[in-house]
């Protein structure tokens, strides 16, 4: 558990501004992907993000395309977790499948401010911020296993090995 700086954004942050479509089939390497993270929303982000930082946003985070790079580029950028009021369905799945924790808490979103340092405690399900401690909704069982393995690919690999 470590402290991370908050990057705060509004509602409906979509996959095109998180990772523009023009890069989806040509930018494949982690480092290069990190350089384009949130490019069309906040050109500062990719330059200044540090491992452990946290994104806090409003409703429907990740709406739009099914492109998994929207989750991958944040993961590669070292983002520790995304906290939002709600997540778009495919992004939610993609994030879990990449081992990127996506946490829902409207109260946390209301209270946390851009630039503050917060702590996310996955074990206790709590977000510790300047204005208080907030609980996030626990993960459904179906996704816990995937998160614990660090994503769907390692999870499936393990499962396949177990079947042999």
């Amino acid at each position: 558990m470590k402290k991370g700086r908050v990057w705060k954004y509004g509602d409906d942050v979509n996959t095109d501004v998180i990772f523009p479509g023009k890069y989806t089939y040509s930018v494949l390497e982690p480092e290069e992907m990190t350089r384009h993270a949130l490019e069309d929303l906040d050109p500062d982000f990719a330059q200044k993000v540090k491992p452990g930082d946290v994104i806090v946003a409003g409703r429907n985070f990740g709406c739009g395309s099914s492109r998994e790079q929207a989750a991958t580029c944040l993961k590669y950028a070292g983002v520790q977790a995304v906290i939002a009021r709600s997540f778009a369905r495919i992004f939610f799945r993609n994030a879990i499948n990449q081992g990127l924790p996506v946490l829902q808490s409207g109260d946390a979103v209301d209270s946390i401010e851009n630039g503050e340092e917060i702590e996310v405690d996955f074990a206790s399900g709590k977000i510790k911020a300047e204005k208080g401690v907030f609980a996030f909704s626990p993960f459904p069982e179906s996704v816990l296993g995937i998160l614990q393995e660090g994503g769907l690919i390692p999870y499936t690999r393990k499962k396949l090995e177990g079947n042999r």
Partner: peptide, 14 residues
């Protein structure tokens, strides 16, 4: 329904 890449890869396998 739409799903992501890792899920499709995993579906191809399982």
């Amino acid at each position: 329904a739409g799903i992501g890449r890792s899920e499709v890869a995993s579906l191809w396998a399982t």
